[in-house]
Amino acid sequence: MEKKLPEVAKHTALILILSTPFMSAVFADINKKENASVLPDTQKNLSITKSKVLAEKRQQLVTEAAEAVSGTQKAVEALEKNDPKTALSILQTVSGKLDIILAKAPSLALIPADIETDYFNFTGDSKAIKQELKKADDLLDSGKIQDARQILSGLASELSITVTNIPIGSFPVAIKEAVALIDAGKTEEAANTLNEVLGMLVKTTETIPLPILSAEALLNEASAMENKKDLSKEKSKEEIMKLTSEATNELQRAELLGYGTSSDYKTLYASIDDIKKTLHSDKSQTTWERVKQTLSELKNKLIHSKK
């Protein structure tokens, strides 16, 4: 006879599994595939929004910081090849790059030098998510925790952005120390110092729920639609209602996937419903501003950053 988990243990297991990041690359590959249950227009909006977010992050990168990191790596390689002259020349260039950074941003502690991204996307709609949760719930009831874990680990839709930063307080000092060691003929110690400084690089990861980004893009498009001159009020209302409906679907997906709780979404759903009442009226702008503000607050609350 199979043992059943008590209700408290079952729900604890659900929470632990759902909060576990990227459990398996296998599931990531499976869930990156498109799913017909999500509207093509929504997928298009999501793709555009992801590109925009990444472009904004890349704009924050400091060219000199990236060159300083790559230069430090090349200097280590030169020392390993017993070529201190080349290493010294490279490090002098690196020091120059760091001086430029200090002049540009003297108050910043961390200077972004590189960016890496990953995403994990379960593309099923709310119905598909509920079906997967039901399967997992039944498995937990039967005590099959690992089987449930495999299902739940795939229920995520998020973009992770990892930025590599130079700690500007310690990095330049360490580079100058390595230069002094090379001048003194202590190439092995210099290489160790450079490896240590590369180990000082600080990585920060920001995780953003994809359905929230998608809902934001859809609502922005809907807001702009109201003022399109080539559309009649009736036609624009039809298009706006379609976009807000898709946005609500995306928010429901986010809620079901465990990004926040139902109370986090309550005000936003109500604000979106108000659009129907105030569309093409003198209250419309105020409603849109409230929707965007509420969504922005939700997004900021749900974005997780870690070092």
Rank of each mutant, 00 (worst) to 15 (best):
Y265H: 05
L198C: 06
A66C: 00
D264Q: 02
A136F: 03
E189Q: 12
N165M: 02
V291M: 10
N192C: 02
V197H: 04
S89G: 03
M200S: 14
E226G: 05
A55L: 01
I208H: 09
K277Y: 11
D230T: 06
G169Y: 09
L61N: 06
I111V: 12
L110K: 10
K237R: 15
L251K: 04
L159F: 05
Q150P: 00
D41Q: 12
K276S: 12
K301D: 14
A68L: 00
E196V: 07
E226C: 08
H11Y: 13
Y265R: 06
G124D: 04
T123L: 06
L251C: 09
I90F: 00
S263Y: 10
S160C: 05
L152P: 01
I129P: 03
E158R: 10
K33S: 09
L139T: 03
K134V: 10
I303H: 07
E206D: 14
S223A: 12
K144D: 12
L5T: 03
S24P: 05
P6H: 10
D230S: 09
P106K: 09
A13R: 04
T86N: 01
E246P: 04
L251S: 06
L110R: 08
L98Y: 02
A184G: 14
A156V: 10
I151D: 00
K10D: 00
L198V: 02
E289I: 10
N195G: 11
G124S: 05
A156C: 07
S214C: 11
G154V: 02
T123Y: 07
A9W: 01
V179E: 15
E226Y: 08
A9L: 08
T49Y: 11
N121L: 02
L5W: 00
A66F: 04
L98V: 02
I145W: 03
K104A: 13
A36M: 08
K135Q: 14
R149I: 04
E246G: 03
E189S: 09
I100S: 13
I30P: 05
S271D: 15
T164N: 06
G71F: 04
